[in-house]
Every structure is written in C-alpha cells, then in structure tokens.
Amino acid sequence: MKILVATDKPFAAIAVEGIKKELDKAGIEMILLEKYGEKSKLIEAIADVDGVIVRSDILDAEVLNAAKKLKIAVRAGAGYDNIDLATATANGVCVMNTPGQNSNAVAELVFGMAVMLVRNFYNGTSGTELKGKKLGIHAFGQVGRNVARIAKGFGMEIYAFDPYCPAEAIEAEGVKPITDINEMYSTCQYISLHIPATPETKKSINYNLLKQMPKGAVLINTARKEVIDEEELVKLMEDRADFKYISDIKPDNASVFAEKFEGRYFFTPKKMGAQTAEANINAGIAAAKQSVGFLKEGIDKFKVNK
C-alpha cells in the first residue's frame, strides 16, 4: 500500500519524519510530493496510491477522478473545504480531517491579534484592556473551547453560540450558552468566529447581524473568509467608526480596508491560525495514524463525507 503526502506548502521536516515513522510501522510506503506547483504533478502522483494526506491542497473532481485506487484522503487540519466531498463520496473515498490538532495554535492567535489591536498596534498611545469585556464565541468546537480557556485568563466574560453543542457542555466549560445568535451579537463587544464554510454559513456574517454589536465592537475571524459578507462588512465599517475587524484571512477587498479603515483592521499576510511547529507536527502525525487506522482496520471516526 502507498500513501501520498502532497503538500505544496510543506510540513515541517520533523512532521514528515513523524508521518514516515507511522507509515513505516504499518508497512505502508510513503510517497512525498512537496512544492509541486503545477496541478498536473499532483494528478500524476495520486494516480496509483491508496491514500493521500494534504494540507490546504485542492483535491477537486479532476484530481480525485485521476486517483483510481484511492480509498482515504485526510486533510491535516480542521477545515476540509479544499476537498470535493461529493466526488470523493461518489468514488468511494473516505475523507477525514484531524480536528483539535491545530486548535490551541488558532486560539492563541486570536488573542495575539486581539491584544495588538486593543493596544493600538503598540504605537505608544493609550489603548484598552480585555479584562471584564464580553466575548462571544461563535461555534464551540475544539478551537472555541481553547479560546474560552485562554479568555478566562484574561478575565473576560464568556458566551458561546453553537446550535450543535448542548448547553450543558458549554456550561461545563464555565461559559454561558446563548441559544439566539442575535442575542449574542447584541450582547458581546468581542466576537470570535469559528464556524466552517458551508452553504448555510457562507456570507452569514452580514450587516444586519454585526450592526447589533455594542459600541467598540471587535470582530475576530480565524475561520474562513467565505463566512463574511465582505461588501456588507465594509458598509458597516463605513457606518460605524467604532467597529474593528481582525483576521488571519485577507479578504478579497483588502485594498478597501487599506484605503478607508486605517488603524481599525489587521490581516496576516497569509492564513496563519495553524502555523506553529507544534500544530504542524500534531496534524501531520494524526493524519498518518488515521490513514493507517482506516486502511488496516476500517476505522473512520473522523469521516466528514457521507
């Protein structure tokens, strides 16, 4: 059996070593394809492998249809919108993610950006503090739980909205559950987004929702840019000089922010939530273990396609 590790943006060397070790133990050959650049190289490499591990690499219909022997595809990370689930399902390919492996890295970035923003990018002027402020966590999965853990250390008042998470589970983390999304946005000065990009969530963070936030509102997005209605966010920030936006995903209209909202926004140069050595290693090794578990024993605990 063969597993392709296809990463145009490579794993850290130590992560690749860990992946190979897991596959070697199982008697599975690792094929490594890094910095491949051209889609044709991925199509060629995936043609005769049993499994594939990717990061943000695109596994669309063309790639998946070329993978005649493929049984398992694992996204080393939480989000999996880079994989065509419908085609994978039609081809009998199990798709998994590695939830939780990047969660602390993303949560720490939330507060790294937040502190920088509220201290006015360390420009020497007087800023504000996070202590005592109300934080709303939109989706209470692994990342949301880690955000809550860190927020407690800052002394914030923490709320969460997640229709798929029981209120008791949220309360068990010392967080106040809210069942009405409008109530959370109207209550919390700070909102941290952790929702996936789905047909239901795309552009769901819009003008009508955000306008309810209290004075001095800060929206933090380490989820996906697709969940934001970017045009409506610009309109809101034009209407409300007190509103600020920080994200590790540069929006398509970033030039408008640069032109109109100096000092009220921040975007990292590229998606950086999971960009730590620890997360890189954890996600890669988890992907290898899940691939082996599926190919050897049929374990599909983290399957995301039906």
Results as ranks from 00 to 15, higher is better:
Val5Asp: 09
Thr7His: 01
Val16Gln: 04
Asp24Trp: 12
Glu34Leu: 12
Gly37Lys: 03
Ala45Arg: 00
Val49Gln: 01
Asp50Tyr: 09
Ala67Ile: 13
Ala76Leu: 09
Asn82Glu: 06
Ile83Met: 02
Leu85Ala: 10
Asn97Phe: 07
Thr98Glu: 04
Asn102Tyr: 05
Ala105Pro: 01
Ala107Lys: 06
Glu108Val: 06
Leu109Trp: 03
Gly112Ser: 06
Gly112Tyr: 03
Phe121Gln: 12
Tyr122Asn: 11
Tyr122Leu: 10
Gly124Glu: 08
Lys133Thr: 12
Ala139Ser: 08
Val143Met: 10
Val147Gly: 01
Ala148Gly: 11
Arg149Gly: 05
Ala151Cys: 06
Lys152Tyr: 11
Phe154Ser: 11
Gly155Trp: 14
Pro163Ser: 14
Gly174His: 13
Ile178Asp: 10
Ile178Leu: 15
Asn182Pro: 11
Tyr185Asn: 02
Ser192Trp: 15
Lys203Tyr: 04
Asn208Ala: 14
Leu210Pro: 01
Gln212Gly: 07
Gly216His: 14
Ala217Asp: 13
Arg224Met: 04
Glu230Met: 06
Glu232Leu: 02
Ala241Cys: 11
Ile246Asp: 01
Ile249Arg: 08
Asn253Pro: 08
Val256Asn: 03
Val256Gln: 00
Ala258Trp: 13
Lys260Asp: 01
Phe266Glu: 06
Phe266Ser: 13
Ala283Ser: 15
Gly284Asp: 00
Ser291Gln: 05
Gly293Arg: 08
Gly293Cys: 10
Leu295Met: 05
Gly298Trp: 11
Asp300Asn: 12
Lys303His: 07
